[in-house]
Design a binder for these strands. Structure first.
Length: 139
DNA sequence: GCCAACGTTGGC
DNA sequence: GCCAACGTTGGC
């Protein structure tokens, strides 16, 4: 299983909005960037991802699961853009801030630290484990 | 609100 | 196919 990171402005689509969609989940639409789209095309049902709030809080606040693989983005007629569906799994017991990621030596090569503009990012197994540790998630 | 970094677009 | 111009993102 692979791991990912989904970035969203809290004012546009927040963790609370995502949780509100429950098990039915929500299309991760609106992505208009090839790298981000390509990442979504590689996702499989059951893959897990972090939910990151950009701008205000700048922190990883929850864990999500991919529940539908890439399909056409219903928010556009443009056939270039695909997206997956995700559902909220659980909140991070402690939000892991961008500052905390930057301060953590083991996360020095993380995409979030190196290229903060990419909206859908891959997360390595090591990075996943470190962030779960920092966030007090899963044990 | 500013601006650096990045991606995309379009003229040549 | 190069590259300058432009728009957008997101940290600060």
């Amino acid at each position: 299983m692979r791991h990912w990171l989904f970035k969203s402005e809290a004012e546009t689509w927040s963790w609370e909005d995502q949780v509100g969609k429950g098990a039915a989940g929500q299309e991760w639409d609106g992505v208009r960037n090839y790298q981000a789209r390509n990442n979504m095309r590689e996702m499989k049902v059951g893959d897990l991802g972090f939910f990151y709030h950009s701008q205000g809080a700048k922190a990883i606040v929850g864990v999500v699961e991919v529940i539908a693989e890439a399909h056409p983005d219903s928010s556009t007629e443009d056939p270039r853009w695909d997206c997956v569906d995700i559902r909220a799994v659980a909140p991070m017991p402690r939000a892991v801030t961008l500052d905390a990621c930057k301060a953590e030596e083991r996360l020095r090569d993380m995409v979030l630290v190196r290229n903060s503009r990419l909206s859908v990012q891959p997360v390595s197994d090591t990075e996943w484990a470190v962030i779960c540790e920092l966030g007090g998630y899963g044990g």
